[in-house]
């Protein structure tokens, strides 16, 4: 087993609003291994972006973080703003969802790569420019030297996301956070950007935390996947294992809702019910009200426990969870997953 690069330890994020406190992320514990590509999936509002912003230290003032986020052993939640600033863009980088809005519209694309280099090292303008040109070429911007001073609006969406990636990898970060990097792009460009991401990962050995709501994207480049639902991490599994045997009832429902190749025209399958209101989150498992196999124990929060297959799920149906939670085996056989 390789070293852990990033570790979330019981991380919770609350937003204080006028209508009360919203718990966007609740008790998430997760470890990322150096060099892996980890996919974090879940529907909109499930807390994936909040978790990544907590990691970057870029949450708004109304948010409060509990728990610890360890990066190379040091706790990011106790760092000062200037310590975090030194890490951001240098050891930890981030790519945002929409390349149309991620770049400063008033500056040339090249300088937006060079400024990342200059923010983290005593580098002359000329050196930074040379390195930025190399990076733009590396991410596949044709005629980078001629486009260096072009403002972002002269580039297509895919090209802009390449520039964003060039800026993100400029200082060879250990961890790259990609928050739905392909959602705003059309499908062919999406494939190109994912290829580029996988390629950069291979060449630089960067650990990637990919946030997505598209399972296809995750299947394409991730080694392991975490599934989030309503602020809780409900399942973590190697990608092949998750696609072959989704275990958590939510994950299974999610896969059932995917239109398959043999899907007949007509209504798509949906998960019955509504995502709970996180301002008044129910105690215990947050999926319980929509779960087809609800148990009495579900009012208690199930711990995320690893089973023999390498998958971890947080569900009282799972023997490993029951053992971790100190409960005996399920009384009704056949109800358990398998």
């Amino acid at each position: 087993m390789s070293d852990s690069l990033l570790e979330f330890r019981k991380v919770s994020v609350d937003y204080a609003g006028r209508g009360g406190t919203v718990s966007a992320v609740t008790d998430v514990s997760l470890t990322l291994i150096e060099g892996e590509t980890f996919g974090l999936v879940g529907e909109s509002g499930c807390g994936k972006t909040t978790l990544s912003m907590a990691l970057m230290g870029l949450l708004p003032d109304i948010a409060s973080v509990r728990g610890r986020i360890l990066f190379n052993g040091s706790d990011l939640t106790t760092m000062t703003e200037s310590q975090l600033r030194e890490l951001r863009g240098d050891r930890i980088s981030m790519v945002f969802q929409d390349p149309a809005t991620s770049l400063d519209p008033t500056f040339g694309i090249g300088s937006q790569v060079a400024d990342t280099i200059r923010a983290h090292g005593d580098v002359s303008r000329k050196q930074a420019k040379d390195r930025a040109l190399g990076l733009l070429a590396e991410v596949g911007i044709p005629a980078a030297a001629e486009r260096y001073a072009d403002p972002p609006h002269r580039l297509s969406g895919g090209m802009r996301q390449r520039v964003v990636l060039a800026a993100a990898i400029a200082n060879n970060p250990a961890l790259l956070l990609a928050d739905e990097p392909t959602t705003a792009l059309d499908v062919t460009i999406q494939a190109q950007i994912l290829d580029l991401l996988a390629d950069l990962q291979r060449r630089h050995g960067t650990t990637i935390l990919l946030i997505a709501h598209d399972l296809g994207v995750v299947a394409q480049i991730c080694d392991r996947v975490g599934v989030m639902y309503a602020g809780q991490l409900v399942e973590v599994a190697p990608v092949a294992e998750l696609f072959a045997r989704p275990r958590h009832p939510y994950t299974r429902a999610l896969f059932d809702a995917l239109p398959s190749g043999s899907h007949q025209a007509g209504a798509l399958r949906v998960i019955a019910g509504q995502v709970p209101d996180l301002a008044h989150a129910p105690t215990g498992c947050r999926f319980k009200d929509r779960c087809p196999s609800r148990l009495a124990e579900c009012d208690e929060t199930p711990p995320l426990a690893m089973s023999d297959s390498g998958a971890s799920i947080a569900c009282w149906l799972d023997p490993a969870t029951r053992a971790a939670g100190g409960l005996g085996p399920l009384a009704i056989a056949g109800e358990s997953n398998g």
């Binding site: 970057m56 030194e86 951001r88 863009g89 990342t116």
Partner: peptide, 9 residues
């Protein structure tokens, strides 16, 4: 937010 994520002052 991206400028902050790049670690600019």
């Amino acid at each position: 937010a991206f400028l902050r994520a790049k670690g600019l002052r």
